[in-house]
Amino acid sequence: MIAILEIQDLHVSYRSSGGGLCPALTSVSFGLMPGEIMGVLGESGSGKSTLAGSLVRLLPANARITRGAVQFEGTDLLRANADELRQIRGRRISLIFQEPSLALHPTMRVGEQVRQVLAAHDSLGKGALNEQTRQVFDQVFPEEPDRISHSYPHQLSGGQRQRVLIAQAIACGPSVVIADEPTASLDPTTQMEILGVFRNLREKLGLAMIFITHNPALLCGFADRVLVLYAGKVAECGSAETVLASPRHPYTKALFHSIPTVFDRPGNTRKTKLPAILGDSARSLPIRGCPFEPRCTEKMDICKEREPAAVNLSASHTVSCFKYES
């Protein structure tokens, strides 16, 4: 199968106020297959939001894409002009942003906000436009499409707002949806519900999805593949079953272990210490060597000297760690 979205050797940096360049993403490469859900796992500072933004070139003004290519339907998105990009955004590749309460226009009815997305990409007549908007709402709010589409964002619950964002994203029938922490601000039960909506849409519409999150547990039973980002680099990438069940990179392992497991292990004593990763996030990065080395419990001498390259453990599982270099 051929990847629908192919990210090749992507490098993104931010220009700091002092004028220097801080790398946010370094040499990120992966391909997204049609209909596949790729879970991108990373904590704050890992570059996961930069990844989402750079795929459709929606980055803060001080960001620079310094190298790489993003191939999509025969176009390199990193070299497309502004108008080509506008045509692709929302129509072929959609974005779902983090905070549903902030990603919607506060004084526009949500129906209108979906209609605007359709109007931006199709020169339909007024009647056809309204009909299409209705259909989208029927899909996302089967119970009460009309009431919701006439509401303003502040009249809706968090879950409903998130569904409106989904409605906007799928309105034009894109082939790729990029969702950046779409459930982070929701209650657990709403979170489950929204994941269900995503799963449904994938089945019905055959969407491919990049699902970005900091919570590995969300990817369980949801993502097909998992890519772990640490300090802007791919630490580990492989099928969800392999990565989530037997993580190999020391960071991935440590991250999974730091989640409380009281549930699954009866008799576990409470108030014991969780095996947390020591040190602070990606702030104090070493100048040389593996970025995880200062916090790694399995570090070796070589880790300080140079960066590990990606090692293929199997056809679909790569890890960037010296432990697996032969």
């Binding site: 929606l58 929302g90 905070e99 902030l102 990603a103 919607l104 526009m108 605007q116 997305v117």
Partner: peptide
């Protein structure tokens, strides 16, 4: 504002973005 960034992400044309949003 994030909702304008989101609208940009949906491919809303610049003029609509400025005057309608």
């Amino acid at each position: 504002a994030p909702f304008l960034l989101a609208a940009l992400g949906h491919g809303i044309p610049k003029r609509t973005l400025l005057y309608r949003y």
